[in-house]
Amino acid sequence: MKKILFATVALLVVGAAAPAVGADLGARPYYNKAPAYAAPIYNWTGFYIGAHVGGAFSSDNNFNGLSTGNNGNGRFLGGLQAGADWQVNPNFVIGAEAQYSWLSGNVGAVFPGGIAYTNDQRGLGSITGRVGYTWGPGLVYVKGGYAYSDNNEKVTVGGVPVAFVINGDHRNGYTVGAGIEYMFAPSWSAKAEYQYYNFGDAHFTGGPLVGTGNFTTDDHTFKAGVNYRFNWASPVVARY
């Protein structure tokens, strides 16, 4: 009986001491979970420079019964652009862009009597604002503003240049357009856009083509290009 009583007392003493020993060992360490992954947040805010290629098509004009446009075959264009964007909230972007495109070919018409009008239109420039809607790496936008046409016009009779006068300023005008842009790599985006240029009506007031009618100088252009973007925002990881 003494042995049983002693063993019972010993077990009670060990059981009472166990919680104290556990307390002395301290709480089990807690390991923080790794931060949950969040998709990259694309930031359109910043400056960019780029280049583009495409085609230009002039509207046909019935000028003394002959077409002065070049819709049939079009002309090649290539150029540069630079601009800046500001992403005002997760879905809307505003910006401004300057652009210049060099053109190949010319527009004009040959009239009876060997009289010819030619406009060797060397380039198109524009300064526009734009507003767009973005969803991550994609952006759709509209644009509009000032346009400039680098005209080199001449009238010839039998191949010999002659003096002429045109009223109406068809070098300065307006432009509107729309396009889509996509960020395909850090700092790089690709775009495709349509842009229309209008430089108003004009007609000859001097020279051999007086009285033959009005004509409109305008251009429909389609462009594809790439931009290098500065101030690219690094992907953001959510913290919990």
Rank of each mutant, 00 (worst) to 15 (best):
F199K: 04
D201R: 14
G74P: 03
G105F: 03
T175R: 05
L80K: 03
K191D: 15
K3W: 10
A51Y: 03
S59F: 00
P137C: 06
G168K: 05
N227G: 04
T217C: 03
A192T: 10
V131H: 07
G168S: 13
D85S: 09
G69C: 02
S126G: 04
T8G: 10
A7H: 01
G114M: 00
Y133A: 12
A23C: 08
I94E: 07
S58D: 13
G50A: 06
G213A: 01
L66C: 03
G213D: 03
N231P: 08
N227C: 07
Y148I: 07
N73A: 13
G65L: 01
N172Q: 12
N64D: 11
N119W: 07
Q87L: 11
Y196V: 09
Q195A: 02
Y31N: 14
I41D: 15
T134P: 14
F6T: 11
V53S: 04
T216G: 12
R229F: 02
Q121F: 05
S59I: 01
A38G: 14
A185W: 06
G177L: 10
S234I: 04
F204P: 01
P161N: 09
A51L: 09
T216S: 13
T68A: 06
S126E: 08
R75S: 14
M1E: 12
N73I: 06
G50N: 13
D150L: 08
K143Q: 12
G108C: 03
W188P: 04
N91S: 15
R229L: 03
R122Y: 07
Q195N: 11
T156M: 01
N71A: 12
A84N: 08
V160S: 09
F204R: 00
P112F: 02
Y141H: 08
T45C: 12
D201C: 07
G72H: 08
S67C: 01
R130A: 05
